[in-house]
Design a protein around this nucleic acid. Structure first.
Lengths: 341, 341
DNA sequence: AGACGCAGTGTTCACGCTAACAACAAACCG
DNA sequence: CGGTTTGTTGTTAGCGTGAACACTGCGTCT
């Protein structure tokens, strides 16, 4: 034990200072880009930093500045294409802005799961948070646990007291429905998402509005849970009804399930029935037949969401612009066509 | 300015201590579950904590304990089903183990993108990291920047110096190929993933091995980039070749592209050509026809990956077990059948 | 009865960093 | 040419927590 190993502990600011022959404060000034450091001194410090492979301790810095330069994201099931895309865009935008991202995802939407995810994030040192969850409970829970924490919701509908960035769900659903009606279909059946999802509600409204505008009767609503299975089950219910010539599913996965059900029952798409989805997942263009759907620009939503959050965090006061909804766009493919006769 | 607003700054340990009439150290002891605190005192402290909505400052705690109780995850494109599922499983396992998760994802796999993601994570206060990226560069880069940081790779093949948790890609590819051969196909064509992906390489090897075992000739290899488009392009190349009766695609999305190409060219699946994919994405069961594929248990991989990392971080020394690969399983559906004649 | 152990609690220090202020030289001004 | 500014650097004081150590009072042992 007489010869002590040179501990492999990472270098700290003081080590850099010693090697460069300056005080640690000068090192700090160099790191934070302060003016009034002689260029020669700066170079010595930078060289010492490289030589020691020094990197600042973010914890210590955060403790004194009271800012962690980290944001939190609470997201519903990140295996779904929409949340996953949004999360990815948020993360990249955050990195560009110099923020790290801590995630907390929900396995499902029951209250316990939401509470667990929110509590986990509330304990983290984050400067702000983005909620990618369709139920207001999530954002509200976080607001209760961490009052004053800047908060933005994405993909969550409008109207709450928390700023929201979202695709225009209502307009998108309307586009889909109008498209089918304009092809000549008498009416359009709708397979909605879960009733407690704001997005699902907005799409139902858009569908209803388009039908009403066209003077078409609204058939009974069917409900799924976004999964292909649930679309399949709904499809089986519709398959034997000859009145059904056009179906608008609230997402592409359910549309796929519907197509499969019709396929099994021998109803041809689009010859007998037209189908339109929502999301434009990468698979949509290659389904058989390829799927007409409503495109959502998740990247744009993610970017705007992060920008809104950063503005809120930096903003001297509440000078933050209220964002417009991101427009949705119809992508016409093979699964929609005029009715048979 | 004579009456100062009661600043809304969050309570700190000292505030709790004062309210409970104890020292801050006693509060600390209560929080960390130390023995030797009188039950009555503990109750007073807990009450004060609730009353002030106090939550410990993770930054300060991390500074003194030198542990942030946060792990980092570097992941390739989290919009893909595999990485997304793995990430989700890691995150949930991490939360159960009391860790937060900071993510850093790659837009693509070029060196600059990897470097950016790795550098971003290296600056974060993480106790360990999991790399969900198929190229060794990512893990190696992190190792260079943060020597000594516990590191685990998932979904990244075997053989490096970094511990890996992975599905048995070789075995899975073999299963798929053997399945097609045993249906009576003379040989099996393969559409591989990018050459620099370890997973893609393992699947090629498994395919080759199965062909060799059966004494079947190995047709020329086709390459895609995992996307449906690339599968579609490969499918167009194969569609006009009557020798092609069985295709094994390295993932489900490419298999979908192949199916679409064959559909356009009038080759029926499975009557004329059988197709098998890999991953078992949720859509597979509902494609038309439904897709035979190889199932990967991403949840299990994520869980094991986190466990391995936590063991490495906690472990007194390198007493960490070397994990077995997670077995893959064949899921037989409609897209594979005996050849026509 | 005096030494000792132990539960329960308080005091002090250190973690690594930034902010505030102090110190000093050189340059500038009237 | 003395006082003041300006540029550059060092010194000190926290940020909020946990660990180490000190202290108290009470019961136990010899």
């Amino acid at each position: 034990m007489s010869i002590s190993e040179p501990a492999a502990r990472p270098a700290v600011m003081h080590d850099v200072a010693r090697l460069a022959g300056v005080s640690h404060q000068t090192v700090s000034r160099v790191l934070n880009g302060h003016p009034n450091v002689r260029p020669e001194t700066r170079d010595r410090v930078l060289k010492a930093i490289r030589q020691l492979n020094y990197r600042p301790n973010a914890l210590a810095r955060g403790l004194v500045t009271r800012r962690s330069r980290t944001i939190g994201v609470i997201s519903f099931d990140t295996r779904l294409f929409g949340p996953a895309s949004t999360l990815l865009a948020i993360e990249h935008a955050a990195r560009s802005a110099g923020y790290a991202v801590t995630i907390s995802s929900l396995a499902n939407l029951d209250a316990a799961s939401v509470r667990s995810a929110v509590a986990a994030l509330a304990g983290q040192p984050v400067d702000g948070a983005i909620v990618i969850a369709p139920r207001e409970g999530a954002a509200q829970g976080l607001r209760d646990l961490r009052p004053g924490l800047p908060l933005v919701a994405v993909e969550a509908g409008y109207g709450g007291e928390i700023p929201v960035v979202s695709v225009d769900q209502f307009g998108g659903a309307r586009l889909a429905t109008v498209h089918l009606l304009s092809l000549g279909h008498r009416t359009v059946w709708h397979i909605a998402g879960p009733a407690d999802w704001l997005e699902a509600r907005d799409r139902v409204e858009g569908w209803r509005a388009a039908l009403a505008d066209a003077g078409a009767a609204a058939p009974p609503l069917l409900r799924g849970d976004w999964s292909p299975e649930s679309g399949y089950r709904a499809g089986l219910e519709l398959a034997d009804n000859p009145d059904v010539t056009a179906v608008f599913a609230a997402n592409d996965q359910m549309a796929l399930g519907v197509m499969h059900a019709f396929y099994e029952r021998g109803r041809r798409v689009p010859a007998d029935v037209s189908i339109v989805g929502f999301d434009n997942i990468p698979e949509s263009a290659f389904l058989i037949p390829s799927l007409t759907t409503v495109h959502q620009d998740f990247d744009e939503v993610g970017r705007r969401g992060l920008k809104l959050l950063v503005d809120t965090m930096d903003g001297d006061s509440e000078r933050v612009e209220k964002p417009d909804p991101v427009p949705a766009g119809l992508v016409t493919r093979q699964s929609s066509a005029p009715p048979a006769h």
